[in-house]
Amino acid sequence: MYIIKTIDCLYKKIQFFKKKGKTLGLVPTMGNLHKGHIELILLAKKHADIVIVSIFINPMQFDNTLDLKNYPQTFLEDYLILKKEKIDILFAPETPEIYPNSINMHTYIEVPKLSKIIEGKSRPGHFTGVTTIIGKLFNLIQPNFAFFGEKDYQQLLIIKTFVKELNYPIKIISMPTIRLKNGLAFSSRNRYLNNLELKKAPFLYKTIKKTINIIIKNNGNKLHETIDFAKQSLIQKGFLVDIFNVYNLKTLNFFSKKNKKNIILASVWLGNTRLIDNEKFILLN
């Protein structure tokens, strides 16, 4: 496994593999790796000759400086995981390597509509930071494939959109959310939860599943009452609800009975930890 810190070294290694006709697969991360990341790496190995994992805690996508400061940095643990998985390249640049000048004055990539609704409305600038760093990584590595989890569904849809609209010759491959047996989605932010919160956290996914069952049973009728009931259930359990609603799977417009493919997107606070989750469903009639 090559550990690369600079863009110059990365470029040389990428060109070396490309001249050999190797296909490249990129798994972008912010470190603090967990089972979800490992499953993405295993998926990447099935598609690409060379697997590249990036670790970069991207300051541009944090709307809260305290959140950035507190984000878990576990490079040694991550290194050992990646070494065990026998990836080919770990790209782990320092911030000045990626943003040599002021972040606020840096050129950025933005997907106008999708970046400013739902999670983007609650976290202004977040998705602009995501698309900018992903675009930079795509330019630097020029992968054939890039791999993302579906837990961050709005982010996934935004990345697919800018890849299509900016004509990147990259295939985006996604993987369903990896969960613990109790339903809690694997997330780097789970480290912030105390023992009591860890016991409560799976209730979010259970509520999403229960809500979908009610929506399907009612054929999409009484949606507002169903969503309000779900929110109240979460509040009574100790969650602070920011987002919990039904959206069109492809456009993220609000639910309409004309839409067959839908998704519930949820963002909640449990103590000081923001948890996000989702689940797709099909309304047949």
Rank of each mutant, 00 (worst) to 15 (best):
N213P: 07
I118R: 08
D152F: 05
P112G: 03
I133G: 05
L275M: 09
I3W: 07
H126G: 03
I159T: 12
L140H: 03
T6R: 03
K199G: 05
L166E: 12
N253D: 15
F254A: 09
P143F: 04
N182K: 13
D8R: 14
K222W: 02
E119L: 01
M105P: 14
K206F: 00
K199M: 06
Q15T: 13
T29I: 01
Y79G: 11
L42A: 06
P112L: 01
N101E: 09
I41S: 05
M175K: 15
K83R: 15
F203L: 01
N245Y: 05
S122C: 01
H47I: 01
D88R: 14
Q61K: 12
N262M: 09
L270W: 02
I134P: 11
K12F: 03
I4E: 13
H106V: 10
Q155W: 07
I235T: 09
D63F: 03
K84Q: 12
K22W: 03
L180H: 15
L42V: 07
L68S: 04
D228A: 13
G183F: 10
L223E: 14
Q73F: 00
K151F: 03
R123E: 08
K84H: 06
P169H: 03
Q142G: 04
K222E: 02
E119G: 06
L80F: 14
N262F: 09
G120M: 01
I215H: 13
Y192G: 10
F138H: 14
H34E: 00
N144A: 02
I170F: 05
I81K: 05
I52G: 13
S267T: 03
V241K: 10
L76C: 15
Q73H: 04
E97I: 07
F244Q: 10
K5G: 01
D78C: 14
I98L: 00
A185N: 04
K199T: 07
I264W: 05
E279Q: 15
P202D: 13
S174P: 11
K217S: 15
Y247R: 10
I103C: 04
H47M: 07
I276Y: 14
F127H: 11
D277W: 11
K20G: 07
E94Q: 09
L33I: 10
L26A: 09
V268H: 02
L10R: 10
W269M: 12
I243D: 09
F75H: 05
P143T: 09
L157Q: 15
N32S: 15
R274I: 00
D49G: 06
N70H: 06
I41L: 05
F281H: 15
R123V: 02
N219K: 14
F91W: 09
F147C: 08
L184M: 09
I159N: 13
R123S: 04
I263G: 06
F148G: 08
L82A: 11
A266N: 12
V51N: 08
A230I: 01
